[in-house]
């Protein structure tokens, strides 16, 4: 039953940044159905409530990982969850990245801040099958070096190009400074024959997708992950509306062709 949470145990807890934690979860008893990269779960923190969180790892064992930033009561409670604690999970919900549609073509993955987490299982899947895809590019932007997540893991990815940039460097930063879109020129890809996957804050998604289109990428080959405050995840609460879309059902991953006119309307 999709309406009742299933208990999952926290088996590992990794702080990512000052306010962000990745929880690795294993089912206490029965696991939920398989999550596809890009899909999300409703994660329940006992006594606090439930929030939608995309999966940042999907394992064949039924294990999951969620990367949570403490921005409210529930997410702060989840960030404080210790190993062996039990949380409730409902899902899988929503659309996935559908990476397989990009088979045989170049791929560019663009992440803003914690937006890298939902993209992580997609990147791992693309890198696990190098013969199936063209050149795989990963572009990451964050406000400051301290806001970058998974830096060690990112450094180990064997991509055609991995770029990391920050808006505000600290004194130890030797990398790029500027917007993530500034890295696009360095990516190894033929935009007109490539797929883009974008996740991050809405202004970053807008700027990135527009830049990809300007470089010749067809809007229906750009997949973006959108966020609204879902309460039920089953299409019944009305909270995740974005114009004609119910993002729990028609999203969170949407083609830019569909998203662009909606995100252009203020306060939609």
């Amino acid at each position: 039953m999709t309406n009742l949470p299933v208990p999952y145990r926290v088996v590992a807890r990794r702080p990512e940044t000052a306010d962000t934690v990745t929880l690795r979860l294993e089912p206490v008893a029965d696991a939920l159905g398989d999550f596809a990269p890009g899909q999300f779960a409703m994660v329940h923190c006992f006594g606090r409530g439930e929030i939608p969180v995309s999966v940042s790892s999907v394992q064949s064992t039924g294990g999951l990982a969620h990367t949570v930033r403490a921005v409210g009561a529930v997410s702060a409670g989840l960030c404080e969850a210790r190993t062996a604690e039990v949380v409730g999970i409902r899902g899988p919900f929503g659309t996935g990245w559908e990476l397989e549609r990009a088979r045989g073509r170049d791929v560019v993955v663009v992440a803003g801040g914690i937006g890298l987490a939902p993209l992580r299982p997609l990147i791992l899947r693309a890198l696990a099958e190098p013969e199936a895809y063209g050149r795989v590019n990963v572009l990451i932007g964050a406000r400051t070096p301290a806001d970058l997540i998974g830096r060690e893991e990112v450094a180990g990815w064997r991509t055609a190009y991995t770029g990391v940039t920050v808006d505000r460097p600290d004194e130890d930063w030797r990398g790029d400074v500027g917007l993530v879109t500034d890295l696009l020129g360095r990516a190894h890809l033929t935009p007109s024959d490539a797929w883009g996957f974008v996740c991050g804050p809405e202004p970053m998604i807008r700027a990135t997708a527009r830049e990809l289109v300007a470089r010749g990428m067809p809007p229906d080959r750009i997949r973006v992950s959108l966020e609204r405050n879902m309460r039920c995840a089953t299409g019944h609460c009305g909270h995740c509306q974005l114009g004609p879309l119910l993002l729990c059902r028609d999203g969170p991953v949407v083609d830019w062709q569909r998203a662009e006119p909606l995100l252009s309307v203020r306060e939609l």
């Binding site: 039953m1 309406n3 009742l4 949470p5 299933v6 208990p7 206490v28 329940h44 006992f46 062996a84 604690e85 039990v86 949380v87 409730g88």
Partner: peptide
């Protein structure tokens, strides 16, 4: 639904 902590540290969810 409701949820109860169990003595063993688990959580039972009841529809």
């Amino acid at each position: 639904w409701s949820a109860d902590r169990t003595p063993s540290g688990g959580v039972d969810f009841t529809a």
